[in-house]
């Protein structure tokens, strides 16, 4: 439903009223923004030394700072890409097991899936970080984050894939059976590719979730973007400015990934039409 259902196409009076309301709303917004700016100014947040290391290439700290942030971004992306790849592989395996396995086995898989779905990601990460080493699994910090993220996201992705497989028209598997394909072959060559394609937007959206959750790594001192920001803040004492930059990087990347999902979705439905 679009907005216009909630109100008529405005007539002259309605347009005038909307204009008045718009101006009033805009004035209030400008006023709030001005208050915020004044608050920042009176607290010395516009002081040059808080901003120039981040934005002025001539500042002595600029190169070091961006080398830190750049490396942090690389660590963030590495963790996200690894977690996404592993989650995809595991997610497909779980989905296929859930669909085709015998009943008791399937119940076991469902149980594990439900438990993993209920565990907060931060706990999955700390679980890996604190528990695995006591059993001799000493890994680089990166892997505790990847394992924690994968534990949760592989389960979510398996649900996405399963929904995709179940949504493939029945005629497809009937046709495959008629061709003499086995059940496994039908899954691999007929159902999975179609499910994967139709669920691509949802899978891309999951990448945003993973990207955001990598920042939990900061709590186990994995030097991703946020942790690097904290290191910068302890030297430069400019939390607001540094958080702003880090948040902007995250928002930009995630926004683009989100747009990609919408674009893929549009292309898919255009092809279907």
């Amino acid at each position: 439903m679009n907005r216009s259902v909630l109100y008529d196409a405005p007539g002259p009076r309605g347009r005038r009223r909307i204009l008045v309301a718009s101006v009033a709303a805009a004035l209030i917004l400008v006023g709030l923004a001005a208050l915020a700016v004044r608050r920042l100014a009176t607290n010395g947040q516009f002081a040059g030394e808080k901003w120039s290391p981040l934005f002025d290439p001539n500042d002595v700290n600029f190169p070091d700072l961006w080398r830190l942030l750049g490396g942090g971004l690389l660590h963030t992306l590495t963790a996200a890409v690894l977690a996404m790849s592993l989650s995809l592989v595991l997610g497909v395996l779980i989905a296929m097991t859930r669909i085709s396995a015998s009943r008791w086995y399937r119940w076991a898989v469902v149980g594990v899936v439900e438990i993993l779905r209920g565990v907060p990601v931060v706990i999955a990460i700390f679980f890996a970080y604190q528990v695995l080493p006591t059993y001799g699994f000493r890994l680089p910090l990166l892997w505790y984050i990847v394992i924690g993220l994968t534990a949760y996201n592989s389960v979510v992705i398996s649900e996405i894939i399963r929904a995709g497989i179940l949504a493939v028209p029945r005629g497809q598997s009937d046709a495959a059976a008629a061709l003499g394909l086995t059940r496994g072959q039908t899954q691999r060559f007929i159902l999975l590719p179609q499910a994967f394609r139709s669920m691509l937007p949802a899978l891309i959206s999951q990448l945003v979730v993973i990207l955001k959750d990598t920042s939990i790594g900061a709590f186990i001192s994995y030097e991703e973007l946020l942790r690097r920001g904290l290191i910068i803040i302890q030297t430069l004492r400019n939390p607001i400015q540094t958080y702003l930059v880090i948040a902007a990087i995250f928002v930009l990347i995630n926004y683009l990934v989100g747009r990609l999902a919408i674009y893929v979705e549009a292309r898919l439905s255009a092809r279907r039409a």
Partner: peptide, 16 residues
Amino acid sequence: VRNCPLTIVLFVFAFG
């Protein structure tokens, strides 16, 4: 807000 990690939102609140 949807594209920003919760951790950063929390840091902004508590230390910003």
